[in-house]
Design a protein around this nucleic acid. Sequence first.
DNA 1: CGCTTGTGGATAATCATTATCAATAGGGAG
DNA 2: CTCCCTATTGATAATGATTATCCACAAGCG
Lengths: 166, 166
Amino acid sequence: MYTVFAWEAYASGFPGCERMFGLFSAAEALKARGMRVTPQRIAVYNVLKATDDHPSVETVYERVRSDCPSISLNTVYTTLCKMAEIGLIRPIDAGDGLCRYDGNPHPHAHVVCTSCRRVEDLDVRIDLDEKEAASRSDYTIDDVAVYFYGKCADCRKLSNRSIRSI
Amino acid sequence: MYTVFAWEAYASGFPGCERMFGLFSAAEALKARGMRVTPQRIAVYNVLKATDDHPSVETVYERVRSDCPSISLNTVYTTLCKMAEIGLIRPIDAGDGLCRYDGNPHPHAHVVCTSCRRVEDLDVRIDLDEKEAASRSDYTIDDVAVYFYGKCADCRKLSNRSIRSI
DNA sequence: CGCTTGTGGATAATCATTATCAATAGGGAG
DNA sequence: CTCCCTATTGATAATGATTATCCACAAGCG
């Protein structure tokens, strides 16, 4: 049973619990999978860990270049892809055709603004029974994603303003 | 409150209830939005309605050419995009970089095979409180999507076979 | 029937992502 | 500590899904 609720608050209230949730350090997780620990990978990982927005590959690339100016976009792509494969980070789809990532790999809901495509974590209780899902579908369930779609406060203000200005 | 459960079974057991669920005929929905009703649009819509898989744009294109041989891929793209905009159909992301669509626009869960990327409807109860989501996020919530990820029975068989054959 | 305007289709352009491949560097063996 | 093997990096090119352009056409109105 996945309970998608208050995870970030819970984790931040219990420093040191990362291991409980499978959040090993990046270096540790890479080594455990036989992958090399390189400065590029650490830098990419740090970019994701340092923010709670959900940057696209291109955005990660721009940010990581301050730490690692010679890194290539290709390396950012492959690094993010591999880290997502081993569960260190989580791929996010905001419906804008870009590949985004979340530094928090634990299942949790997201809310996507359908105007500006910003993505935020959503602290809402949702009970998802993966056993029921598996029994009804003949799939083995490994993961779940929940997306809410709507308008953020900023975009609501903008649309109100444009209506008024007519 | 969205309750994502047994919707297809419910709807199929009550023929004629489409209007209850906002499922007007394609022609009706297009007209209501001031969009023209063309043979191409009807043909594209019928392709989606005739299947319970979740075809990509390219797949819709291949199938619709039996009804409408001269249709262009561009028209399929724009038609699907506009129909999704007005809520006639639902865009689906299977994580393979393709744009897929579901002829059933009502919120319901999906399960995605991470090997072959097939997508199936999932008949599982999930209670999602969009009011709670809105109150916690300062977003107005219009829609929700739930994806389970795992392996389908066919891909499990294939991976077992390949392990045995080593 | 004729007019207006949204739409379709052919083509080209865009752009995110992936492939290629030689040079480089991680990290275990000795 | 050094060497060596091999995964990784980065420059470049290629791929391929999606989007833009633009003219001809036809839907829908009177």
